[in-house]
Design a binder for these strands. Structure first.
Ligand SMILES: [Zn+2]
Ligand SMILES: [Zn+2]
Ligand SMILES: [Zn+2]
Ligand SMILES: [Zn+2]
Lengths: 124, 124
DNA sequence: TGAGTTTTGACAATCATTTTCACTTTCGTC
DNA sequence: GACGAAAGTGAAAATGATTGTCAAAACTCA
């Protein structure tokens, strides 16, 4: 019997997009699992803390998670309709953000960059 | 007597950083206003809808607002400690985001870009 | 097998935000 | 100046995601 956290990880990995704790909970229960919502939240929290999954906030403030292929720093191109995401990189953006921060005397500079759109499939 | 919404706008303008509805409500009440929390939320909602103020989400999912100098598209360099923000522009980033979206067949491409750091004053 | 540790999940508690709903205030009109 | 519609207000209740509590279940390992 796989551990609960493993089940959450698998459910998240099966999706190519960002999913909320509530989404995953619904999926798991639909598959017959008896997992509790609390456990889903705890699993996501742990995976997010360890950097195993990426997390971002929807416009409504709900946290959504994604199991990305890499744990290296990267950004996402996210479909506004189906939430499917593509991992993207932008060396120029990385440099720009660091420079902007330095120019204004800011230290410990980090940034958030996400690109949204309607994917080809959802545009059709 | 100024309208309630005007009071909210003024309270927000007095700050150079991002403030939450709860923050502004506390400020206004501390200044002796009898304004209700609901009204603060409604005022911010309206101003945000009309593009008069910018809104973003904290890591905790709380919505924070800012009365920026311009209503044109721009981004922010935000202090992680005091939430003070500086308006910034990045033509290169604008192009990059649009291109990335197009390359992957996405339409209606938009983006969110925010830079965080510790401002000079808070670093001291 | 048994004590000690970790994981789990039902349920209650938080907390920001939204809804309701019963006033007030504002405004155009007579 | 009075009057009814429309917009603005706010106290209190409702929502909804997320977190805290705590006792039961599963696991570890001597
Ligand atoms: Zn899509
Ligand atoms: Zn980056
Ligand atoms: Zn600061
Ligand atoms: Zn931009």
């Amino acid at each position: 019997m796989t551990t609960r956290r493993e089940a959450v990880r698998r459910a998240l990995t099966e999706s190519s997009g960002f999913r909320s704790a509530q989404d995953l909970y619904a999926d798991l229960r639909a598959d017959g699992s008896k997992i509790g919502l609390t456990t889903v939240y705890r699993a996501l929290q742990a995976m997010s803390d360890s950097g195993e999954v990426d997390v971002l906030r929807t416009d409504e403030g709900e946290a959504v998670y994604r199991a990305c292929d890499t744990e290296d720093h990267h950004h996402h191109l996210v479909c506004r309709v189906c939430s499917t995401a593509v991992e993207i990189e932008g060396p120029a953006v990385e440099r720009w953000a660091a420079e902007i921060g330095a120019q204004h005397g800011f230290t410990e500079v980090t940034h958030t960059v996400e690109v949204f759109g309607t994917c080809a499939r959802c545009s059709a």
